[in-house]
Design a protein around this nucleic acid. Structure first.
Lengths: 135, 135
DNA sequence: TCATTTGGATTACTGATGTAATCCTTTATT
DNA sequence: AATAAAGGATTACATCAGTAATCCAAATGA
């Protein structure tokens, strides 16, 4: 697996725009962020530059302007970030987090049903996992 | 709710030590981190100082040395961090994260059972949540 | 053609973070 | 008593992140 570039919080906002639609010009990104982030256009351009340097995005030239697009998928990114977040806060153990969330969060009954369904599936497919370890 | 101080990753390691046992002297913390973090003693002291400034920890003087202890609970902290993490990566929606994790993660069948149990509890107690909104 | 606007490139500045070293004072050692 | 060791306080310095402003070349308008 390749190294994913580290994306800062501010940069993340830009990525979200590009993930939602791409390619886009700098100005389109700037507009998309307007009213949402209270950033000066120049600020957004800086973020775009930094994302370029980090190889998180790239561009195709069209005339005198560039069309930017992401080089990393949001999914990969979320996955990786979540992994390291978990490691940091929960020592890598997923279950405590899940327990925590299932307990604390307001979930509609529909959502609860869906989660249960997923768990049921896992019961079928995955019961042999890790069994071997008990010798 | 009070403002929790922002704790950096390196500082977090120190906090973990103090959460696991407190109060402790700087040297005890330094020892506890040895072999684990490859930091010079002075580095750890810097982190301790910064945590003091941020009011994340405090100390009682005993003779010429200090005994440090946390001022914020790990639970509060984890809760807050998780909230903002979710907000950042999943737009605040918990369910996508839960789905993601339930799907991706290796969970033992015991864990799965426990999670199901929690969901069952929630089904009973919480079905009226948010119902009002549909007018 | 000359001035203006515009897009991208470069430079700027502040605060946080990682990673220490140096300084100063008090206590322990010779 | 003079010196060394030790603990905390202060200072250091590079990099990253947030937040822009300035510079420069090409396109546009007068």
């Amino acid at each position: 697996m390749k190294e994913l570039p580290k994306i800062s919080e501010a940069e993340w906002e830009v990525m979200k725009i590009l993930w939602s639609r791409s390619p886009q010009t700098a100005n389109e990104v700037i507009e998309a962020l307007e009213g949402q982030m209270d950033w000066k256009p120049k600020t957004v351009r800086t973020l775009i530059s930094r994302l370029l340097q980090k190889n998180a995005i790239a561009f195709q030239e069209t005339g005198r302007t560039y069309l930017y697009y992401p080089l990393v998928s949001q999914d990969d990114y979320v996955q990786t970030e979540t992994q390291s977040f978990l490691k940091r806060l929960y020592g890598g153990a997923v279950k405590p987090l899940l327990v925590h969330f299932l307990r604390e969060q307001k979930l509609s009954s529909d959502e609860i049903s869906e989660l249960k369904r997923i768990l049921d599936q896992k019961t079928e497919e995955g019961t042999d996992c890790e069994r071997r370890k008990d010798r």
